[in-house]
Amino acid sequence: MNPSGVYRLVDAATPAVIVLSGPVTRDEVPGLCDDVRELLAVTGAGAVVCDVGGLGPGPPGLAAVDLLARLELAARRAGGRIRLRDPDPALRSLLRLVGLRLQVEGEIEEREPALGVEEEVEPGQPAV
């Protein structure tokens, strides 16, 4: 565990929480990714909650986006996901702008829209 990623485990039914406080430096990112992988392995849960309410003063920037993208990638490689707690509206807008869809605690998970796939049909039959 590193200084920015204070985490706590309440019980097996409650997802583990990583509290991200203050601006996170690039040097801290690999340790936070390790924390996410470890929490997923230890708890067996499908998600780790990342409390991003204290990520830093001022508007969020690309460093926050990079951090969250790396945490999500680490979680997915470990068979899980991250879920955001208390994201600033500006952070949510920035994440949408760059196309990073992360689940937010308390919201229904968004799914990718289904692709328009047509099945092969016999001549004379309408496409489905």
Results as ranks from 00 to 15, higher is better:
11 D>H: 04
68 L>T: 03
7 Y>A: 01
70 R>D: 04
17 V>A: 10
79 G>I: 04
19 V>E: 15
26 R>I: 13
11 D>Q: 02
38 E>L: 13
53 G>L: 01
44 G>D: 04
23 P>F: 05
90 A>Y: 09
112 E>W: 11
80 G>S: 10
94 L>G: 06
73 L>P: 00
20 L>K: 03
24 V>L: 08
103 Q>D: 14
111 R>V: 13
1 M>I: 12
1 M>F: 09
39 L>W: 02
87 P>Q: 03
2 N>Q: 10
90 A>V: 14
118 E>L: 14
58 G>R: 01
35 D>T: 12
77 R>F: 12
15 P>Y: 03
83 R>G: 01
55 L>E: 01
84 L>S: 02
47 A>T: 07
50 C>Y: 02
81 R>Y: 04
40 L>E: 00
110 E>H: 11
59 P>S: 13
64 A>G: 07
28 E>R: 08
58 G>H: 05
35 D>Y: 00
58 G>I: 04
87 P>N: 03
8 R>G: 06
123 P>T: 08
128 V>F: 14
109 E>A: 15
118 E>Q: 13
26 R>F: 15
21 S>N: 10
78 A>C: 08
110 E>A: 15
62 L>N: 06
125 Q>S: 12
8 R>F: 00
32 L>I: 13
29 V>I: 15
51 D>K: 02
62 L>W: 00
35 D>A: 15
36 V>I: 04
88 D>N: 14
84 L>Q: 05
53 G>A: 15
7 Y>G: 04
31 G>M: 08
10 V>C: 08
109 E>I: 11
99 G>T: 02
98 V>K: 10
23 P>G: 07
92 R>Q: 12
114 A>F: 01
117 V>W: 12
95 L>H: 05
51 D>L: 07
125 Q>R: 14
17 V>D: 08
35 D>G: 05
108 I>G: 12
2 N>G: 09
75 A>M: 01
9 L>I: 15
123 P>A: 11
125 Q>A: 13
27 D>W: 10
101 R>G: 09
52 V>T: 07
54 G>Y: 09
4 S>D: 07
123 P>C: 00
44 G>L: 10
6 V>N: 12
61 G>E: 05
38 E>I: 05
37 R>I: 01
50 C>K: 03
9 L>F: 09
5 G>M: 05
23 P>C: 00
89 P>M: 10
94 L>N: 05
22 G>D: 05
11 D>W: 00
3 P>M: 07
103 Q>S: 12
109 E>D: 14
36 V>W: 06
128 V>H: 12
23 P>A: 13
50 C>I: 05
3 P>L: 11
111 R>H: 11
126 P>V: 06
117 V>F: 12
124 G>C: 08
113 P>D: 12
103 Q>Y: 03
19 V>S: 15
86 D>F: 09
16 A>N: 03
64 A>H: 08
126 P>I: 02
38 E>T: 15
100 L>Y: 07
70 R>F: 02
70 R>H: 09
49 V>M: 07
99 G>Q: 03
27 D>A: 15
77 R>E: 14
48 V>D: 03
34 D>L: 10
48 V>H: 01
95 L>R: 04
68 L>Y: 02
33 C>K: 06
46 G>C: 06
77 R>Y: 10
4 S>V: 12
89 P>F: 07
69 A>D: 11
109 E>H: 08
87 P>C: 03
101 R>W: 11
105 E>S: 10
38 E>H: 13
14 T>N: 14
81 R>T: 06
123 P>H: 11
1 M>D: 13
87 P>G: 07
7 Y>F: 13
